[in-house]
């Protein structure tokens, strides 16, 4: 029998994996306007998605190296800040990912509620 502590640790680990999977979609969705890293973190937090800073900055770099974001330094403020914005390729991908996400949530809702997309009752299997 799994102990409560082990269960909680496993839950934390799997939840982290789940959240990691949606970070790209969440990030791309919020960068239609250029934002610097910390502003994006606040933006996501205000909408209910907390993301660690140590996770976001490398992610932004990776998305940029994949051509999904573009960035430039802004030195007008009190300190230099790197502003990220979704690229045309990123926008196209965002639309595909959004469609995929919606399909997945529909399927998953059906699975979790015990109903099927194709009108079959999974619980009778």
């Amino acid at each position: 029998m799994m102990k409560e502590k082990e269960l909680q640790e496993l839950n934390a680990k799997l939840t982290q994996e789940l959240r990691r999977g949606i970070l790209v979609l969440a990030t791309l969705s919020q960068l239609k306007e250029a934002k610097y890293g910390y502003a994006l973190i606040n933006n996501l937090a205000e909408r209910g998605l907390d993301i660690e800073q140590g996770t976001l900055y490398p992610l932004l770099r990776r998305l940029e190296s994949q051509g999904l974001l573009q960035s430039e330094w802004n030195v007008e403020g009190s300190r230099p800040r790197r502003y990220y914005e979704i690229s045309p390729a990123g926008s196209s991908l965002l639309e595909l990912l959004k469609a995929e996400w919606r399909d997945l949530t529909t399927v998953l809702d059906g699975l979790l509620d015990g109903t099927s997309m194709r009108g079959e009752n999974n619980e009778s299997d």
Binding site: G37, Y57, R79, P80, R81
Partner: peptide
């Protein structure tokens, strides 16, 4: 990366 990291830490 160092410049961005420093800037982000001060922001926070």
């Amino acid at each position: 990366i160092q410049v961005e990291l420093r800037s982000s830490l001060i922001d926070a």
